[in-house]
């Protein structure tokens, strides 16, 4: 499947048994990269099978072992994780070719599908920091661009928020479960990677400003579109809907969506992203006509 230029290390020793039954070992290949701009390379590890393993515990074992299949001592694989129960969104990676959370990628299931090995690689749409760690700050910059918040006057006591229908709450809750994991963006054929190199003599601030500018012009993706949908249906957020709609139809906005609908298929939180995209599309249509005829 992989369109990478680096061949799998087929010549290296493999775990003799990898059918996933207890007491057996299995193979894990990891696409590693020592840092930004460095070449990537595949590395094979043999992991001892244990009950109830997921890809996080596989990586924990690799870290504790820190040896490749051929016994070479290597630095532990770097990866991101935090909650390990699929609510924090940290541990996104590409597992056997498909983007998902490592914590819910159960080893038993993966070995059922492919007894040969488990293949881990970093997301392709974000700059690699190291190994399986990527820089997803673009997503948070997108949320800034879209003004994805409820613009309250103050944090003083002003009584409760507006009443809301159950229907409205349920819709908002589903959208609000988005944990910025980036799966929808990774699987999106229209979302392209942006990787900048820091220029010589450029300060960190200048670099981030340049990066932010580029992020602001690039595609916001399904997660951004759903955020606009969420805040523009909030009774208070709706009051500033125009600002978010302006951002929605600006450069890098909803128009880039190509309706491949991979986003909704890979979303671990089962957020109805394509519904949001269509609703935002409708809002954008109305907004465009208004801008044309009301100016």
């Amino acid at each position: 499947m992989s369109n990478t230029r680096h061949p799998h290390p087929n010549g290296e020793p493999r775990a003799s048994q990898s059918d996933g039954r207890p007491g057996r070992n299995f193979n894990v290949v990891v696409l590693r990269q020592d840092g930004p701009g460095r070449p990537s390379y595949w590395e094979r590890h043999i992991v001892e099978y244990e009950q109830d393993m997921n890809c996080i515990s596989v990586l924990q074992k690799i870290a504790a072992n820190a040896r490749t299949a051929d016994g070479r001592k290597v630095a532990p694989v770097a990866w991101d994780c935090n909650c390990l129960e699929e609510v924090c969104g940290a541990c996104t990676m590409v597992i056997n070719g498909r983007v998902r959370q490592a914590c819910t990628a159960l080893v038993d299931r993966l070995l059922q599908d492919n007894p040969e090995q488990i293949e881990l690689r970093p997301m392709r749409k974000f700059p690699v920091i190291r190994d399986l760690m990527v820089d997803r700050s673009r997503m948070f910059n997108t949320l800034k661009k879209l003004k994805a918040w409820v613009p309250v006057d103050s944090y003083l006591d002003m009584g409760p928020g507006p009443r809301q229908s159950q229907e409205n709450q349920q819709m908002a809750y589903v959208l609000s479960k988005c944990m910025s994991c980036g799966c929808c963006l990774e699987a999106c054929p229209q979302y392209l990677k942006i990787e900048l190199e820091r220029k010589e003599g450029e300060t960190e601030e200048e670099f981030h400003a340049r990066e932010r500018e580029l992020h602001d012009r690039a595609f916001i993706g399904a997660m951004g579109i759903a955020a606009v949908d969420l805040f523009n249906t909030n009774p208070v957020g709706r009051m500033t809907a125009t600002e978010r709609l302006d951002a929605l139809v600006a450069e890098g906005g909803i128009q880039i969506c190509g309706n491949a609908q991979n986003c909704v298929k890979v979303c671990p939180k089962e957020i109805p992203l394509t519904t949001s995209i269509a609703r935002a599309g409708r809002a954008a249509t109305v907004h465009m006509l208004k801008r044309w005829f009301d100016r």
């Binding site: 918040w149 409820v150 309250v152 944090y155 006591d157 002003m158 009584g159 409760p160 928020g161 009443r163 809301q164 229908s165 159950q166 409205n168 709450q169 908002a172 809750y173 609000s176 805040f231 909030n234 208070v236 957020g237």
Partner: peptide
């Protein structure tokens, strides 16, 4: 008051049929 504030900040608290938290 904290719940009221969080409600205003857009927390999607479950609702009764009448629209209260």
């Amino acid at each position: 008051r904290i719940i009221d504030l969080m409600d205003r900040l857009g927390v999607t608290f479950n609702r009764t049929p009448e629209g209260f938290r």
